[in-house]
Design a protein around this nucleic acid. Structure first.
Lengths: 273, 273
DNA sequence: GTATCTTGTTCCATTAAACGGAACCATGTT
DNA sequence: AACATGGTTCCGTTTAATGGAACAAGATAC
């Protein structure tokens, strides 16, 4: 039924397959039985079985014996702890997001580039303090989001050239920039002004202003955005926030760089008793 | 220098080794260079190199080319998203923790059993709404925490017999139950009353009451606790909260079970635009 | 400016592990 | 009792991982 969703995961031997299986289990979003996975994977029965067994014994998957179904394991949660802390700007940016959110009352996003997609790392919703994990880990299109365009604009040409062919250019709304040419023109403009707008390009009625987070050497680390609805605000009002946004982005970048050179600090194992 | 921290990670072949390397990278808590890992791992140079290469190409690690150092990759963050949502009770329990916290003004913990250890999944600190990730993923001893004992008490005897020998029975405070016998006596009492106390067994001056989260079939899903200090409150006052705590635990269990049988709902890929 | 060291990468014959077809077992069905 | 269906184990074959050693590339020392 589900069919196998992608033969794409090329294959660094056994490890690649094991991780592919892990992804497939995670993608189900619920405990999944052997036979379901079997149907959704290209692997022969015995192989899949051994792979699952290995992952389970490693704690990457958990086997519910009552229901005889697999789910992501606790080891993954422990790893997540570590990954979240370092793999991303999230922990550094957190207080800055809080401040921006309090100050503007608007929705704040933090994102990083993951291939040709945007990976949201954190979010503040002025009103309800939204569950972080409900947002973190989400992916979205790069060509029609403020954060996406802000990051693309400051990528080296070589990277950009590699990424553009991977994009869908799906026309989410009438305003979506749906060709490489229009996107590139927009990126040039963003480079000039230093910030990007989403003019209802992703969702009707939703607009945002975004700023890239750049290292001192100009490398793209991530992006920040303020989002609102046309019903409540306007592009002009958002534009007025742009300087504050860029300033915050710069502050995050500065901290991120300081953090990279502990050179001696942070020797302790990150995993407490 | 660092020496290799554990030869314990038995070894399901290649996958086991790869995951072991992943753990080691994560444990550093900062970007780490090849040679540092080399020194901290039992693997020969070429092997470690290939392992790192595989993990990197799989997106589980990210290689910063400027600094030529490895850090946990974004794929791990994406997997974390999935793991957190299903592997744990956290998303389901969240609103209940909020309610308990608001109602009691005390610290609230949510934990699951991870082998013979307690894995904290979420926490509420009445005063400052604590960064979730600063707590999630932490592990602690099972024999001298409220949540630990609450869960152990309702485990099938077979599991308990397997787990007890793995415990350290380290005497954290004078009140710590430091032998299997005293622990078992306590567990019997907990089974009788339905809730567990931590009588300064883990940290002096810190007490708590905990209730197990049990499935309708009686399987241990996790535990909930209210923690306070002897300076501010007493065991008696905590005991008065026990019924409310158990009630909440039951409510979480009910939702968790409903969640297990969507059978059709939640088909969408958790990955939004 | 050459020698040397430290750090990271590639080779390749050896060895070990993954593979997968098929047989098998356990439950639940007609 | 015969038969699915879903899951697990066997075992000869195939493929991939291994790791010692040689090799490149910067960084330091001389």
């Amino acid at each position: 039924m589900a069919g196998d969703q992608s033969g794409i995961h090329s294959g660094d031997g056994t490890v690649g397959k094991a991780l592919d299986v892990l992804d497939r289990v995670a993608a189900f979003g619920r405990p999944v039985r052997f036979s379901e996975l079997m149907a959704a994977s290209p692997y022969p029965k015995a192989t899949l079985f051994r792979l699952l067994q290995t992952l389970t014994s490693q704690g990457m998957l958990a086997l519910d014996p009552e229901r005889s179904s697999y789910a992501p394991g606790l080891r993954l949660v422990r790893l997540a702890h570590a990954a979240w802390r370092q793999a991303s700007l999230a922990p550094i940016a957190r207080p800055f997001l809080d401040a921006l959110s309090a100050e503007t009352g608007e929705t704040v996003h933090l994102a990083q580039l993951d291939g040709a997609h945007v990976l949201y790392l954190d979010k503040r919703n002025a009103r309800v303090p939204v569950d972080m994990f409900s947002q973190a880990g989400k992916v979205g299109p790069a060509h029609c989001t403020g954060v996406g365009k802000a990051m693309l604009a400051f990528l080296p040409e070589a990277d950009l050239a590699r990424l553009i062919p991977q994009m869908s250019f799906h026309r989410h709304t009438p305003a979506t920039l749906a060709t490489p040419a229009t996107l590139r023109a927009e990126l040039a403009e963003i480079r000039r002004t230093g910030h990007a707008f989403d003019r209802e390009e992703h969702e009707p009625g939703i607009i945002c202003v975004a700023a890239p987070i750049l290292s001192s050497r100009g490398r793209v680390l991530g992006a920040l955005s303020l989002t609102t609805a046309t019903a409540r605000s306007s592009l002009g009002a958002l534009a007025a926030r742009a300087p504050r946004l860029s300033e915050t982005a710069a502050a995050i970048a500065a901290e991120a760089e300081a953090w990279q050179f502990p050179d001696d600090a942070g020797r302790r194992a990150a995993i407490g008793g």
